[in-house]
């Protein structure tokens, strides 16, 4: 197990190195940040000054070497635009995004799992069919449209919920989250619902497919033949078997939700890091983009690791040590 974790972390370091190089070169190829940072009437001298201050006058390989050297000491550079440490900028906004992503994921499971199981148990009933039809909508409706419609209905027409921004942030046990204030929770409802919709649709389909498959297994019939109550047959024997794919997909999706909740954050003016990434790309703010992707990669690697560990907890046949990869 420990060997597995260490090997996994080493692999992720390699991925990190490759990715940082790609992003470095990529941003360099897109354009010159100095052209964006300098005011339109700046002189050639001013421009050279800016370039020198940012270290952009040196050749690319040298810039990369400096970056790597600094990064190894935990310094990921300062934002060209804000002049603040890039990591600091990201962490400032990460709380809001992680909070949104986690709430959305929890909601999607709480909604998707029971609906999916129900649809799997009664595939031919009206309710079961409606759930499946609904999940297709959940898949195919574009996030921005759903967001706008939710705002239209609940904020504009009914006036029940706020349409934008993060509400009051409370703190509890040193954690800062809008979940700790009523105002914060009210602000979370619409964006979290929007974000949860697609995930819930995925969960419904996975749960339904899983139930349909597992229900015909001999061990389910054997569990019934033992005289177990139906809720134990479904809640333990079936559920534990269908959780394997659901945990895998959900775990991986949390990562992508955190990393790329840009659309939802934009619609609801949510002060998360998705917006920061878009702005930084537009401004060619390389340190922030690189630092952002490092954070995202780190989150994805961690989630992958957690998923693999959970996988071995859920499925005893999986032995982490022997696994290659």
């Amino acid at each position: 197990m420990l060997v597995f974790i260490i090997r996994r972390l080493l692999q992720s370091l390699l991925a990190l190195a490759v990715m940082s190089l790609l992003v470095f070169v990529g941003v360099y190829l897109i354009g010159d940040p100095v052209a964006i940072l300098a005011s339109p009437d700046a002189t050639e001298v001013d421009r050279e000054q800016i370039a020198r201050a940012l270290g952009l006058d040196r050749p690319l390989w040298e810039q990369y070497a400096v970056f790597v050297g600094e990064a190894l000491r935990g310094n990921f550079g300062k934002s060209f635009v804000f002049g603040q440490p890039a990591m600091g900028l990201i962490f400032e906004r990460m709380g809001a995004t992680v909070e949104l992503a986690l709430v959305a994921t929890v909601v999607s499971i709480l909604v998707g799992l029971p609906l999916g199981i129900y649809a799997g148990l009664r595939p031919d009933g009206i309710a079961g069919r409606s759930i499946m039809a609904g999940s297709i909508l959940g898949f195919s409706l574009p996030t921005f449209w759903v967001g706008l419609m939710l705002i239209m209905i609940f904020a504009v027409q009914l006036g029940l919920l706020p349409a934008s921004g993060r509400g009051q942030v409370g703190s509890f046990l040193g954690l800062h989250s809008s979940l700790f204030t009523l105002n914060g929770i009210v602000h979370l409802i619409l964006p979290a619902t929007t974000l949860a919709l697609v995930r819930a649709a995925t969960t419904i389909r996975l749960a339904r497919a899983g139930v349909r498959e597992v229900l015909h297994m001999d061990y389910v019939k054997f569990a019934r033949a033992k005289g177990l109550p139906e809720r134990r047959v479904i809640g333990v024997h079936v559920l534990k078997n269908i959780m394997i794919p659901i945990v895998t997909v959900t775990g991986l999706e949390i990562g992508s939700v955190i990393a790329f909740a840009v659309v939802t954050e934009t619609i609801y003016a949510w002060p998360g890091m998705g917006k920061l990434l878009i702005d930084s790309i537009v401004n060619l703010d390389r340190p922030v983009v690189v630092a952002y992707l490092i954070v995202v990669l780190f989150i994805l690697v961690m989630l992958n690791l957690i998923v693999d560990i959970l996988y071995s907890v859920l499925d005893p046949r999986v032995r982490l040590g022997e696994q290659k990869g």
Binding site: D218, Y219, F222, A225, L314, D315
Partner: peptide, 19 residues
């Protein structure tokens, strides 16, 4: 079921829940 009437299945590889 299970208490007064029990059943043994054909394929022992499939009757016990793997997880």
């Amino acid at each position: 079921r299970g208490s007064r009437i029990a059943m043994i299945f054909q394929d022992p590889m499939m009757t016990l829940n793997p997880v």
